[in-house]
Amino acid sequence: MFYPNSPQTSPQLTQIPYGQQYAMMQRQIQQPYHPFATTEPQARLYPYHYQGPIQQEQGGFITQQSTAASPQYVQMRVTPVDQSIMSGYPNQTANGSSSSSFNYNIHPQQQQQQQQQQQQLRHHAMPVGSVPLQDDRYRKQLIVNYLAPDVTSTDLHELFSRFGELDGARIIYDKQTNMSKGYGFVYFCHAEDAKEAVERMSGYEFHGKWLKVGYSTNPLNIVPSNSSPYVHAGSRGAAG
């Protein structure tokens, strides 16, 4: 039997160049792979992502010199942007860049009308829970959420009447099932009393439920100042 490094198959040491006398086997001759043993700084910083320098080929596509990437890492192929796409944008300079302001050559009167329309939209648009300043009635009506099913309009009136005089209180019921929808409205005579009720009743436990109280901004629920107070009856038909 002959071994790869046996004296019968191995040459004389004098015939082997210096430095390879003890590297006779194939696994010894093959050098191990060192990912950080390279002179390129990109490979030292990113050993798993770097795959060699990027070269520009004919046709405008950018390719990489090395083989496919590892399945664990996804390499994105980048193509140059066609400058003709950006030619339609206004205020574009000769080098292809555009300024931040756009001039669509709008007539001054049209621009003024658009600004007025935007101001009107901001004036009428009102986020949930906010209180408008032009109508004091919005500051007097509250919406009470997360009410228990057994709470009546009379219970709601008695709960909030300790903060001040009320114009009314009612629970909203479903017309088909005649069941409470879980929320109601309270109408105060003074805005200061309503503000105190919002601050003190939010998070209050009532009939096993934690109440959420806020201003009601729905104009359909506003009680006119010259109208008669609501009837605080315990029956659902009268309260709904």
Rank of each mutant, 00 (worst) to 15 (best):
M126R: 04
Q72R: 07
K140A: 01
T67R: 09
L13P: 08
S87G: 13
Y22F: 10
L166N: 05
A94K: 04
R170V: 00
P224N: 08
S70C: 10
T39P: 12
Q26L: 14
H49K: 02
Q28K: 02
P71Y: 12
R236P: 05
V231L: 11
E205C: 11
V198E: 03
P80M: 02
N218G: 00
G240L: 09
N218D: 00
W210N: 02
A23C: 15
S225Q: 09
Q26E: 12
R27C: 15
M24Q: 03
I171N: 02
Q114M: 05
Q92P: 07
E165D: 08
Q58Y: 15
G164D: 02
K181G: 00
Y73C: 09
L159W: 01
F163I: 07
D155I: 03
W210C: 02
L147N: 06
G237S: 10
G59E: 02
Q114N: 09
T39A: 13
A94L: 13
G59M: 04
D136N: 06
Y215P: 01
Y46W: 09
D135I: 02
D167H: 05
A43Q: 08
Q116Y: 14
G52A: 13
R170S: 00
V186A: 06
N103M: 09
V74I: 12
W210A: 02
E196S: 06
Q64L: 15
L133R: 08
S10W: 14
M201W: 01
K175Y: 15
H34V: 05
P108H: 08
H157N: 12
D174K: 01
S101C: 11
N221W: 15
P71W: 11
P108N: 11
H123T: 11
P90M: 12
A239Q: 04
S101D: 03
N145Y: 02
I106P: 06
P71N: 05
T38V: 15
Y50K: 02
Q20I: 05
Q15H: 13
Q109C: 13
E205N: 12
Y73Q: 02
I54E: 04
V81W: 14
H157M: 11
G59Y: 14
N95V: 09
Q120S: 12
A239L: 03
F160W: 09
S101I: 08
Q141Y: 00
G184Q: 10
H190R: 10
K175S: 04
V151N: 01
Y173Q: 05
Q116W: 14
S100Y: 10
P4D: 03
I16Y: 14
P47R: 05
L220H: 02
F206P: 01
V128W: 12
F36N: 10
P11D: 09
M25Y: 05
S228Q: 08
R236D: 02
Q72A: 05
H107E: 03
G52V: 13
G52T: 08
G234M: 05
P11R: 05
R200V: 08
M126Y: 12
S153F: 12
H124S: 04
R139I: 11
S99T: 11
D135C: 01
L45I: 09
D136S: 04
Q64M: 15
G184A: 00
A239W: 02
P80S: 07
Y73L: 03
Y204D: 01
R139L: 10
R162V: 07
T38Y: 15
S180M: 13
Y104H: 11
S101A: 10
D135E: 07
R200P: 02
Q83P: 09
N103P: 13
Q51K: 12
H123I: 11
Q42L: 13
M126G: 09
G96F: 15
I62R: 07
H123Q: 10
A239T: 14
H34N: 12
Q112E: 07
A233S: 07
T177V: 07
S100A: 11
A125D: 11
S216P: 00
G240S: 10
P32Y: 02
R122D: 02
